[in-house]
Computed example of a mutant assay.
Amino acid sequence: MTGQLTNNKFHRPDIIQRLRNGETILVAEGYMWEFGRRGYLKYGGFIPEVVLEHPDLVESMHEEFVHAGTDVVEAFTYYANREKLRSIGREDELEKLNRTALKIAKKVAVRHNKLTAAGLCNTPLYVPGDDTCTAKVKEMFKEQIKWATEEKVDFIIAETFNDLGEALLALECIKEFGNGLPAVITLTPYGPDITTDDVPIPEACRRLEEAGAAVVGLNCGRGPETMLPLLREVRKVCKGPIAALPVAFRCTEDSKTFQSLKDPKTGEYLYPVDLDSARCNSSDFEKFTKEALEIGVTYLGICCGNCATYFRAMAEACGKTPPSSKYTYESSLSHVFGAPEGQKYTRADKIREFMLDIKKN
């Protein structure tokens, strides 16, 4: 255990110190998509009502990702803002949802001596240059940051921004209301490598870094293959730590984002309910992680589509051995594809032929 227990509280190096010391920080995200896949969250609204309705399942998923190797337990407060709760008639439960999510995350983090993060995200209200909208968004950020600081998180993540202006506003609010907590700010590139307020993504990351973000980078939108080229450009212009959290879907040069993926059989768009047919696998994340590390990414994770087995592959590619590594695939234990040393199972060859549909001449 790296922290020291004093007065029932762990004291550990903060995220900035750990990154400066050369550590790679792993951050499991993707709660929204996984809860939707399991039938506890409505696609379309993407509002984390599960925090209120099944808090035990939220705690269990945090435990699952700790088991798979995350260094950070991020509170499930994505889209837990006033405007989104108002859209489903649950605005009066806003504070309860946020505080419940923060307390659950803190509970699991302390149990395993992990860092705790709060989460902010893009809003449906932001309009560049509209002072009235800006004021409303600032108030929404402010109240979420206030609850996060009161629940004693270690840092704040602000993510999935399409507009640089809104990302800068989130950073401004964290600096103003966050009691000195570090800020991780990530952008979501869609088709072109520019923000929706027309700033090249690398330039936007550079400006966020210069404005005081502890970590900048990319999350969501793009899959492992289509995020890597842009990460290389971000690395060229940013001096500090950069982040990479792709979605777990096989995006291509023709379909750079998971929203634009189509079914090869029908030509229909897969987003959001049919994306399973375009999922990545563990080997994809092993490859992505190694390439990201070569680029110089030190804050790594997986966004929408994440699951524990993918995250374990990422952790192991970083040279880490999370508790779930005990259960990593071992071919020698298979009586068909391996067999223990010195043991030969008589019917294994025939079974393998049937399984693989091997045609012998």
Rank of each mutant, 00 (worst) to 15 (best):
C205D: 05
N122I: 09
I302W: 05
L356T: 13
G22D: 08
P55C: 01
S283C: 15
G221L: 02
E143H: 07
R37M: 11
P229C: 03
V199K: 01
D193E: 11
L168T: 10
A348V: 06
L228H: 02
K106M: 01
K326H: 07
V215W: 01
D198C: 13
H335G: 13
P13H: 01
T77W: 02
A117Q: 06
D131M: 15
R207M: 15
K103G: 06
N122F: 15
E176V: 13
P200Y: 00
G342A: 07
R99N: 09
E286A: 14
V137I: 02
N7T: 12
L57R: 08
A278F: 09
K114D: 09
V110N: 08
G39V: 03
T186W: 00
E83I: 14
K114P: 05
G180F: 06
G69S: 03
H335P: 15
I194W: 13
R38W: 13
E353I: 08
P264W: 03
S87Q: 03
H112C: 02
W147M: 11
I88N: 04
K96E: 04
P128N: 04
G212Q: 10
D131Y: 14
E210P: 05
F258Y: 11
A317C: 04
A278N: 11
K256N: 04
K359I: 07
F65K: 00
L231A: 05
A317V: 05
E233L: 10
I145T: 04
A211V: 02
T188W: 08
E294I: 05
C280L: 09
K350V: 11
L231W: 02
K138W: 10
N21K: 14
R222P: 02
T24I: 08
T188Q: 15
L275W: 03
R38E: 13
I145K: 06
V110M: 09
